[in-house]
Design a protein around this nucleic acid. Structure first.
Lengths: 350, 350
DNA sequence: GTTGATTTCTGCAACGTTTTAGAACACGCT
DNA sequence: AGCGTGTTCTAAAACGTTGCAGAAATCAAC
């Protein structure tokens, strides 16, 4: 094979720098090449001889070169940052941390970093998002507790900023989301309660502002109509209500005439609160009254008496959201990708 | 007052750029000043006339100028990033998310961002930390589950990288930490159980590898010696054991001869597991056997029968850690600052 | 008026990267 | 020889910021 092209100038290879982290210049000096060449070699530019590319790459990995994030970001505008907007509604139990763990799994082999942007109670929900967008602080945004006409989504779609929401909207345009199938959850929960013998079923539903409230109610009502069972959905009580209020409701509705003997609980705290209310009212859970609880952490398997649970896997949700977001970032055509997570039924003795 | 110094050149103020986020140049053009001048004015350099400083600052806030993080980082080397190393041991219940929420509170009015660096199960614990240090990815590091001779702390102290640990060490050099007073926790827990009438007390302790295990054991043993009560600390069972194993242990030790009638549980999952085991064994919690549980989330107030809890406020811990870290970052002399968090007793009916 | 001190502002360089434009050389063909 | 072509590499500029070294004007003093 004939040697072609420009031959290497027999440049003195400077001795490797001792201090500081390696940069393109470090490699360039080591290899006797120009910084540009090294950059291109690492990017597999076909203009660079294969032999050189290989040499540069092995040199780079040898000295543990990692491109400088700041320089990259300054030059290219890409931040390689994804931000999770931490919702004040995020339940203590699992929601935040499982989701985060899933996200980190999705970003594991990528250069992306996960930053947490808090949304403080009382602030306008749009603030954290518009701050991120305006100052270009992230390549993509993740958030939870989506509303039917969520302003955050309107803004992000308008500005063409990649995002994935946990929860759906009622906008006409498509956008990437991951959601738990709360409709199926409620449907299955009611069916299970009826199989257990419940004759009057109540549901502790999400706050009306969230889209998933409608899904859960719809599933609930479908099952109720399908079976003709008596039901109630308390007004003014939702999953974000203080546990004490939920407990009091369960306590009250456990007795009187037309007592409730089946509860669908959309979350663990409400599940425990309902159980507490029933216990306090002298009812025996699992015998004269039944529960189906949506579980996002493994606590309920240790709660006694055992109750039927339906599992929402938030770590998986996080991982999917991360994957979808990376997809949208690299290819904005994937804007309508989504994932609807099926409920995982986990019932006590069959 | 006489006009002194160099007068403003009557330079044409270029019309404000419409596109892109504002930079120093935007302000400079607007004010008819040089970029350097604007930079110094914003930094309150006394070399710049007060009038100019005021004008520049009002201009800056008017157009919503925010220094570019990438440029700042590239130029100064400061990242304005703090990283939390997410431990795989972080309990689903509260640990992670409360701590994170507290951290974000501490960074609220600062330019610091919180990034989450995962530590995946099976990886060497040093990996995430040394990666952060080597590539200068953060100005400060936060981590949990500290060990007596924690390699992470050794490394960070050696490299002089600011950090705050959750938990103490047995190193001779001082370092910033926040810790819950697990000694007092165990001490008070035993006292409470004895007041309830327990005659044989067991403790579900942390895994031996963590420093706080020793503190908890020490507090426990102090109380045991002080009172002369019978006790046991099961071998091979700790807070990180599968809940089922803990349940089985409680189930077994609830009966037989010399049954245990008082449990100190260092965490919520173990608390629920012990209650489950006792219930399954036919014991009545609150009558013939008692529990004191360390609580980091509000779940236990809804668990029936109610048990005594001692609260560890992880959100406060996070906020303190954030504050301490900012202190160390800006003034490395504060390396020995720390905060020992007192247990908050929350007992059922007095 | 020149000089020097003081005040106030400016230009240049650098951080590490990618992009754009082009340079240096070898080869094959006339 | 000369020319075009293809291959392989490089110099310079730019992203937005700050530190350094000065520059331009004024004032006080001679």
């Amino acid at each position: 094979m004939p040697q072609r092209g420009r031959p290497r100038k027999a440049r003195l290879a400077a001795q490797p720098e001792v201090s500081g982290k390696p940069t393109l210049k470090t490699i360039a000096d080591l290899a006797g090449l120009a910084v540009t060449t090294v950059s291109r070699a690492l990017h597999d530019d076909p203009d660079i001889a294969e032999k050189t590319r290989l040499r540069v790459k092995s040199l780079a990995s040898e000295i543990g070169y990692l491109p400088d994030r700041a320089a990259l970001r300054l030059r290219t505008g890409r931040t390689y940052v994804v931000s999770l907007v931490l919702d004040p509604h995020d339940e203590i139990l699992g929601f935040g941390i499982s989701l985060i763990r899933g996200l980190t799994r999705a970003f594991r082999a990528t250069p992306y970093h996960l930053i947490i942007t808090p949304h403080f109670q009382g602030e306008p929900p749009l603030d954290p998002v518009s701050h991120l967008v305006r100052n270009r602080m992230a390549d993509g945004i993740i958030f939870t507790h989506t509303e039917p006409f969520d302003e955050r989504i309107r803004l992000l779609a308008e500005q063409d900023v990649p995002f994935v929401s946990h929860g759906r909207t009622e906008f006409t345009f498509p956008h990437p989301f991951v959601d738990f199938d709360n409709g199926s959850f409620a449907l299955e929960a009611v069916r299970r309660l009826i199989a257990r013998g419940s004759g009057r079923i109540a549901m502790i539903a999400p706050s009306r502002q969230f889209t998933f409230c409608q899904h859960m109610r719809h599933g609930f009502m479908t099952a109720v109509r399908e079976t003709g069972v008596a039901f109630e959905i308390p007004d003014g009580i939702d999953l974000d209500s203080p546990a004490e209020q939920i407990r009091a409701y369960a306590f009250e509705r456990a007795g009187g005439n037309e007592p409730v003997d089946g509860f669908v609980c959309g979350g663990e705290v409400s599940g425990l609160a309902v159980m507490a209310g029933l216990t306090d009212a002298g009812r025996t859970v699992g015998r004269d009254v039944h529960l189906v609880v949506k579980q996002t952490s493994p606590v309920f398997s240790q709660v006694r008496p055992q109750v039927d649970v339906i599992v929402e896997d938030l770590e998986e949700a996080g991982e999917r959201m991360g994957e979808l977001l990376l997809g949208v970032i690299t290819d904005s055509a994937r804007r309508d990708a989504h994932f609807l997570q099926p409920p995982r039924l986990s019932y006590v003795d069959g």
